[in-house]
Simulated scan of single mutants.
Amino acid sequence: MGRFQPFHWGHFEYLTEAGRHSARLTVGITNPSAERTRHTGTDPKRSSDEANPFTYEQRSAMISTSLARLTPHLRPRIVPCDLRSPTTLRSSLGPCDLVALTVYDAWGREKQALAEAAGYDVLVLWQRTEKLVTGTEVRRRWRNSLPWDHMVPSGTAETIRSLTG
């Protein structure tokens, strides 16, 4: 699960690694709408409008197009994922054998605890302090007309370009 604002190479690394641990991959897109956004003190900026410029449908297109081109064997089920509580997480993500996630900071630990409280078996793929790419940097470059498309798979770049003409 992740916001994927936008889907970038760090997310690609995470999803392909998660796909190695399960025959069925479900990708939960968090903050799928303003009403289903978790507001948290561990990362207050993540719920801001500025940090969430792409709709659930746009992010789903970024992921599905990118994965279909680069890892067609994965064929994930993509769903809106509501992290406001363990109950809303369980009802939105549905049945999963395993929830795989990455931990970089306090928000990652909070997300892990939330998934465990929802009754999921959780696999932390890795704990790191540095990210390969950040959505914040991709969005900054995109908004300032700086080179950004090398930071994302082609399916993401095409989706974003289709929005801006």
Results as ranks from 00 to 15, higher is better:
L89T: 11
T156I: 03
R59L: 07
S85A: 12
S33V: 01
S92R: 01
R143F: 13
S22V: 08
R90L: 11
V99C: 11
V79A: 12
G41Q: 10
E130R: 07
W9V: 01
H39M: 10
D97H: 11
I29L: 07
T65G: 02
W148P: 02
R3Q: 08
R77T: 15
P44E: 01
P72D: 13
D105H: 05
E116F: 00
H21A: 06
L15T: 14
I29T: 04
S22T: 10
F4A: 14
R140L: 07
H11A: 06
S154T: 13
Q112H: 06
P53Q: 08
A51D: 09
L98R: 09
T134R: 14
N144C: 09
D82M: 03
N52T: 02
P153S: 08
A23G: 13
D82I: 02
Q127W: 00
S91H: 07
R38T: 02
W9P: 03
L163T: 11
G41H: 09
R77I: 11
A61G: 02
E116D: 05
A100E: 01
T159G: 08
S85L: 07
S145K: 07
V122Q: 12
H150P: 00
A61I: 11
P80A: 04
Y120H: 14
V152R: 01
R77E: 14
L67V: 08
R143V: 04
K111A: 15
R20N: 12
H39V: 14
L146V: 02
T71A: 15
T87A: 15
W126D: 07
T87N: 12
I160C: 01
L83N: 08
T87W: 13
H73L: 10
T16N: 09
G2F: 00
T16C: 13
T30P: 05
W142P: 02
P6D: 03
T87I: 14
S48M: 07
A157H: 06
P32I: 03
R161G: 05
M1R: 05
P80H: 05
T71R: 15
L163G: 12
Y14F: 11
G41F: 07
A68P: 01
R84L: 05
R69S: 10
A100N: 06
L89D: 10
R139S: 01
F54D: 03
S91V: 00
T42Y: 05
H73Q: 15
R143M: 11
T102S: 08
P53K: 09
L15A: 15
L101I: 01
R128F: 04
S22W: 03
A68Q: 11
I78K: 10
T134D: 13
V27R: 06
P80F: 10
R46T: 13
